[in-house]
Nucleic acid binder design. Structure first.
Length: 263
DNA sequence: ATGGCCAATATGATTGGA
């Protein structure tokens, strides 16, 4: 089974790229972020025509997450617990059944947090605490769980071409990295780091300042695996070539292969 | 020379992104 994540930066602007990439990479489950539309405006039909079931947690203008799955959804849950009055669409959880048992998948869009310090950074840190609380509960189930999305976290200096440029940024400040490590310390595996020690693995290149041409990237899109998923990890990769396509997102897809029956 | 973009919106300027 192949599970992927991609911050598409507007799904309606990215349909050509999305359809081309789905055909090329053939993922079984896809976590999308920053769809930037309400549920009714999500382009369901062309994706269903490619064989995907669709679950959407949208919002007008900003944020928005979705899940595509070749397997039907047994359960779908919108939103992250603990956000009293939080209306931002950033979290979508689903359970699917396979011949090898259930798989739980989360598509998440963790808050950016800039400028830091400030209200937005406080919201980011609280959101990360809520995510840790969610994980503590779900890990008790001892299921294969894939927590995938745009975490807006640069975990270590090796995950940026120019780490010095990010030292005062909400994506790289010590409290951000501490809370990301706290997630991993609950027992999760960073899939890309499990398969490679390379220092040039990036998933985002800014539209500005020729970042792509200079390979001035950062790794902020992650797939974190529960022990039951990590034990079945057979591969992982970043589709960086997609950043070179026409009308690209500023993020590229990241995927894992698990030794679990797919379709 | 340290800047250069992109998307959505009661839209031609502002907000958010990272």
């Amino acid at each position: 089974m192949r599970i992927a994540t991609w911050n598409v930066n507007s799904v309606r602007q990215r349909m050509d790229n999305l359809q081309a990439w789905l055909t090329e990479r053939q993922p079984d489950i896809v976590c999308l972020q920053e769809i930037k539309c309400v549920d009714e405006a999500f382009p369901r039909e062309p994706l269903e025509a490619l064989g995907y079931n669709v679950a959407v947690h949208g919002q007008k203008t900003f944020n928005g997450v979705a899940l595509l799955s070749k397997l039907p959804f047994d359960e779908v849950k919108l939103g992250l617990h603990g956000g009293d009055g939080d209306v931002q669409a950033r979290f979508l959880e689903a359970l699917v059944s396979t011949k090898d048992g259930v798989v739980r998948v989360v598509s998440l869009y963790l808050p950016n947090g800039n400028p830091a310090p400030g209200n937005k950074y406080e919201y980011k840190l609280k959101w990360m605490d809520r995510l840790a609380n969610f994980l503590r509960e779900r890990l008790k189930l001892e299921e294969p769980l894939v927590l995938a999305g745009d975490f807006n976290v640069i975990p270590t200096p090796a995950d940026a071409r120019r780490p010095e440029a990010w030292v005062k940024d909400a994506l790289f400040l010590p409290p951000t990295r501490e809370k990301f490590r706290a997630l991993l310390n609950l027992g999760l595996t960073d899939a890309i780091r499990a398969v490679s020690d390379a220092s040039d693995l990036y998933t985002f290149w800014d539209y500005q300042a020729g970042a792509w041409a200079k390979d001035d990237g950062i790794r902020i899109d992650h797939l974190l695996l529960s022990p039951q998923a990590a034990d079945r990890l057979t591969g992982a990769g970043i589709d960086r070539h997609v950043r070179g396509w026409d009308k690209p997102s500023d993020h590229v897809p990241v995927f894992v292969d698990l030794d679990i029956a797919g379709r």
